[in-house]
Amino acid sequence: MTELVEDRRRRTVRIIARWIPTALLVAATVALYASGLAKEISLDSVQANEIHLRHEVAAAPAIALAVFVALYALATAAFVPVGLVLMLAGGFLFGPLVGAGATVVGSTLGAVMAYLAARFAAGDRVRRFLARSRWRGLMDGFERAPFRYLLTLRLVPLSPFGLVNIAAGCARAPFRAYVAATLVGAVPYSLVYSYLGAGLGRAFLRSREPDASVLLRPEVGLPLLALGALSLISIRFKRSSA
């Protein structure tokens, strides 16, 4: 009888532990939307609060950077579609290199959080269902060449970043390959958008209401050209990996 009770308790603990990452992720999502923070994160908001934000960064740069990384990670894990805004804001507030580094770390941490939540929550039944559904090709890619396949998905423009995190977790893609591909894949776009954000920041300092001519300035135009080139390279990379 004692062994039966102990066995039930162990099963209960395993079930609770299995759902903890998902529960934390749901709680973070609810908190971001309930607080209104998810709606407040926008380019207009960053520009409107530029002086205050720059003052906070200058007063406590390490804390500001840590808050930025944590916010980026939570937003990424919680499917809050503010990644582009935060990438631009990172370069805008911290400079292109530091901003890009913070973006890479934040996006990778958020992706890992979503991956773990999906991996723990999705049992063998879910995995078998996905293997028989229209997601079969995705599952095969994770199993056949996980790093290359994940890196391709990370580099392709407009790839559903959040869905890839969940799918990789449900498919139980190798953790090291997942983290490595996510980290490497985040670097190019983070650099380009951070440089673009820094360029826009300098443009805002010159003129509070910049017009279309801002696109002709090197600090803005060059990152945009780099973004276009990166998109073309990513598409070619995807075709070669197919």
Rank of each mutant, 00 (worst) to 15 (best):
F142I: 06
F120A: 15
R128M: 02
G123H: 06
V126H: 05
A145R: 14
R119C: 08
G141W: 04
P146V: 01
R128Y: 00
R136T: 07
F129K: 04
L116T: 11
F142S: 00
R134G: 10
E143A: 08
A145H: 13
R127W: 09
P146C: 08
M139A: 11
M139S: 03
F129N: 10
R125C: 06
R144K: 11
A114P: 05
G141R: 02
L138G: 14
R127Q: 15
F142N: 00
L130K: 01
E143S: 03
V126K: 03
D124S: 11
F142P: 00
F129M: 11
A121I: 09
R119T: 11
D140E: 15
A114C: 09
A122N: 10
L138T: 04
W135D: 01
A117E: 15
R134T: 11
L130Q: 03
L130C: 10
G137M: 02
F129P: 08
D124C: 01
R134A: 14
G141F: 02
G123C: 05
L130R: 02
F129G: 13
R134L: 06
F120C: 15
G137F: 00
A145N: 14
F142L: 03
M139V: 07
A121M: 12
R132M: 08
M139D: 09
A145D: 15
G141M: 03
G137P: 05
V126Y: 04
A114H: 02
R144P: 00
P146A: 05
L138F: 14
D124W: 05
L130V: 07
M139Y: 05
G137N: 14
A122H: 12
G137T: 00
R144L: 05
A118E: 10
F129H: 08
M139W: 02
A131N: 01
A114L: 07
R125K: 14
D140L: 09
R119S: 13
R144H: 12
F129T: 10
R119H: 13
R134Q: 14
L130P: 07
D140A: 13
Y115P: 14
E143W: 02
R119G: 12
L138N: 06
R125F: 11
E143D: 11
Y115A: 12
G141I: 00
G123Y: 01
F129E: 10
F142A: 02
A121S: 15
L138D: 07
A131V: 06
R136K: 14
R134F: 07
R136C: 03
Y115M: 11
D140K: 09
A118I: 10
P146N: 07
L138Y: 07
A118F: 05
R125W: 15
F120M: 15
A131F: 00
F142M: 12
W135R: 00
Y115F: 15
G141P: 09
R144T: 02
R127Y: 09
G123Q: 09
D140C: 04
L130F: 03
S133V: 05
F142Q: 04
A118P: 06
V126W: 03
R128L: 00
F129C: 05
A122E: 12
R132F: 01
R134H: 12
L116H: 11
A122L: 13
S133T: 11
G141L: 01
P146D: 09
A145E: 14
R132Y: 04
D124F: 00
